[in-house]
Amino acid sequence: MTKPIRAAKRMGDPGGLLGLFAIAYLLFLYIPVLFLPVFSFNDSIFVAFPLKGFTTKWYEQAFADDDMLRALTASLQVGAVASIVATILGLLGAKAVTRYQMPGQSLVTGTIMLPLFIPEIILGIALLILINALSIPLSLFSIAIGHIMLCTPFAMAVLTSRLDGFDKSLEEASMDLGETPWMTFWRVTFPLVLPGIVSSMLLSFIVSFDEFLLSFFLQGQQPTLPVFIWSQLRFPNKLPSVLALGAVILIVSCLLVVLAEWVRQLGTDERKVGVA
């Protein structure tokens, strides 16, 4: 007799077998990545079983390398510039598409999202041609230009989802109470969108920090960290310190992603108050 009720409650429920699959899938996603930190502590030049013993010398070696530190600084600089510029552009753009009705809007947003659908190699050579045509020397600046282009769609997507459903009467109320559009932005919009801005900056930073191919095409004398790592892969004796470096990068980016997601969730309940 209880069967119809259960059937209705569990409509579409896949049952336990799929749960096992899901766990296996997560293992497939995470285990390969976990080998980096595991072997970064292994006291052997070879990345192979059996593990030889615990050591932190690869970390010491990695962080004693001046070239690595210069590449790290370069990546941090490029990441900071790209994430700030992309977030400002994305914020203005997201504001425009969520607040106003414009003819040709979908064409414009489509163009902005296009880099997500184009193979990076194409973006790389196209930007190389542009940088060459503008006679900009290949440098960290040219890399930053490429990263801004790459990060903007991410920033725009994060901020559009944040601003979507933003009760526009909040801004109207502020203007109605005598604030200019500029002050309205600072007193109402900005505080409410702040979590989205932080999230967008973090995610753009990660995208830029991890980006290899564009940097590879647009690099000058000073490589970014991923380009530096790429150049180290040719030397087998550098492998353990690359593992150490990789492990640090992976863990830091995981933390940043979780932070970004947490910040993004943070404000969503609060925002709904205005709509309710």
């Binding site: 400002i88 552009l89 994305g90 203005l92 753009g93 504001k95 425009a96 598409v97 607040r99 106003y100 009705q101 414009m102 809007q105 414009v108 163009t111 902005i112 296009l114 880099p115 973006l123 196209a126 930007l127 542009l130 230009i145 490429g146 801004i148 282009m149 903007t152 725009m156």
Partner: peptide
């Protein structure tokens, strides 16, 4: 709308 959208639009036209 387009006034707000123009910075990102111009950036993407120039860079993409």
């Amino acid at each position: 709308g387009y006034a707000l959208l123009s910075p990102v639009m111009i950036t993407m036209v120039v860079l993409l």
